[in-house]
Design a binder for these strands. Structure first.
Length: 108
DNA sequence: CCTGTGACATAAG
DNA sequence: CCTTATGCCACAG
């Protein structure tokens, strides 16, 4: 069994995020056994958008704020994608977050 | 090995 | 929730 890097694991989990759901960096990090490496999750996403097929737009911080939208192409692309999945976004923040929240530690 | 870094999280004000 | 500060830790160079 080859050991995948922390980054690779992040990509795998992110890909498993169901349609119309979102999760937080901390939740992913915690699921991977590195709850304190939440920052690395976002860091990994940087590489993901380059070639990995990861729906980074479904990953937000624990407040449900689209903190990473600046890393997308446009300024509103991330919001557009989320709204396209039935998620309401207001002022860069996901509404009804708990309703759309998807916790890998619970769902997986 | 050491340093810089970052799309977070938490605490304090 | 906002701002400011601190911790945290995996990866890149």
């Amino acid at each position: 069994m080859k050991e995948e890097s922390f980054f690779d694991r992040v990509y795998e989990v992110a890909r498993q995020i169901p349609y119309g759901r979102v999760t937080s960096y901390g939740a992913i990090a915690k699921y991977l056994g590195a709850a304190r490496s939440a920052r690395m999750v976002g860091y990994a996403m940087n590489g993901s958008k380059l070639n990995e097929d990861v729906p980074a737009h479904r990953v937000v911080n624990r407040k449900g704020i689209l903190t990473g939208k600046h890393h997308f192409q446009g300024t509103n692309l991330m919001q557009q994608l989320l709204e396209s999945e039935g998620i309401t976004v207001k002022d860069n923040q996901i509404q009804n977050l708990e309703k759309h929240f998807w916790d890998p530690a619970k769902e997986l």
